[in-house]
């Protein structure tokens, strides 16, 4: 456990709206710390569609998810936000002095008078294959990520999936595994071609088994996998020996621990007012896709607007004795100094 960080605003989610919130808060001299479960900023923009063009950002006729993220990072840079990446916001509690303590699953503690939930649809988590009873095997013999390769030495490994993760781990684990079987629903992969070629070589050499199949059943005791039932393209079922199963089907979005924060929720969204975008809990704001209000549109541009109004309200909470001076970046030398352009 590290020393708690004290700041003005803790932001959950480093997607486009969280990043723009850094900018709007920064103009008002409010310091920010962001928490995101992904290993880089950008949220859905970089995780789901980095290469897809977006056409409805005001002033940018066309921009990709990655470019938009890069530009928002550049725009927020003068305000030196601190990123706590690859961490999930896991707890929120109120301190006696009225401030909030946000904790993460990595043990980071951020204390701030204002918390902004800019979490989109929630946390990106690995997709769990719809195999009965799989939960009981998780973290014992079913893993959605490889943290230590040694853990898999001399094991009978089953990998499922057809993307880069499935192929990369097939190649990396094959040399240390007792046996390695790869299953995918078709004889084609969306992974890098050289990885696919290397995998096919290992199959030819008999070092990896490949089946066009899907996983239908897991068998074992107390979470320790022993055998797996597969169904081939002809739907015929067969079993193989496996004591470790690694499914790689990418990520999906689940609301996650935010549901346990004690906030008022409506269909997994946080209701807010449209003046400050504050939740019904004072000091907790929600902006972007995670909030709901009459007329809400899930557009990035709506989130930008919400961030600007939230920042005004956050200022009054963080600096109760100061007067907020409304200024334009075009004319204020004070703001321009903050932006490093004057």
């Amino acid at each position: 456990m590290t020393t708690p960080i004290e700041t003005d605003v803790a932001i959950i989610g480093a997607g486009p709206i969280g990043l723009f919130a850094v900018f709007e808060l920064g103009l008002l001299d409010l310091k920010t710390h962001l928490v995101d479960i992904l290993d880089r900023p950008g949220g859905q923009c970089t995780e789901l569609y980095p290469e897809k063009p977006i056409y409805d950002i005001p002033g940018l006729p066309v921009v990709t998810g990655q470019e938009l993220t890069d530009r928002l990072l550049e725009q927020s840079k003068p305000f030196s936000p601190t990123f706590h990446l690859s961490q999930m916001a896991s707890g929120l509690s109120r301190l006696d002095d009225g401030r909030w303590k946000l904790t993460t699953d990595a043990g980071t503690e951020i204390i701030a008078p204002v918390v902004v939930v800019a979490a989109g649809g929630g946390s990106f988590v690995p997709k769990r294959p719809p195999v009965p009873g799989i939960e009981g095997f998780e973290n014992i013999s079913v893993f959605y990520a490889v943290r230590k390769m040694e853990q898999f030495r001399d094991r009978d490994i089953l990998i499922a999936g057809g993307g880069d993760s499935a192929l990369d781990w097939t190649l990396n684990l094959a040399p240390i595994a007792k046996s390695l079987t790869l299953v995918h629903h078709r004889d084609g992969f969306r992974a890098a071609q050289h990885s696919v070629n290397q995998m096919r070589e290992l199959v030819e050499q008999g070092k990896v088994k490949f089946h066009i199949a899907s996983v239908k059943g897991l068998h074992g005791d107390n979470g320790q996998l022993q055998r797996v039932t597969l169904a081939g393209a002809d739907k015929k079922e067969f079993q193989i020996e496996a004591n470790a199963f690694l499914p790689f089907f990418g990520l999906t979005i689940k609301l996650g621990p935010i549901a346990e924060f004690g906030l008022n929720l409506h269909e997994n969204l946080i209701p807010v007012d449209t003046e400050k975008f504050e939740s019904t809990t004072k000091g907790i704001f929600a902006i972007g896709d995670i909030n709901t209000y009459a007329g809400k549109l899930k557009l990035i541009l709506s989130g930008f607007h919400e961030a600007a109004l939230m920042a005004q309200a956050a200022f009054h909470i963080c600096r109760p004795n100061e007067k907020l001076r409304f200024q334009y970046t075009t004319s204020s030398s004070n703001l321009q100094k903050k932006l490093g352009v004057a």
Binding site: K127, P130, G161, G163, H185, R186, R190, S214, F249, G250
Partner: peptide, 13 residues
């Protein structure tokens, strides 16, 4: 679409 289906679960013909 074919590529994206690789990331779906329980894919059938």
């Amino acid at each position: 679409e074919t590529d994206m289906l690789d990331m779906a679960l329980a894919v059938e013909a």
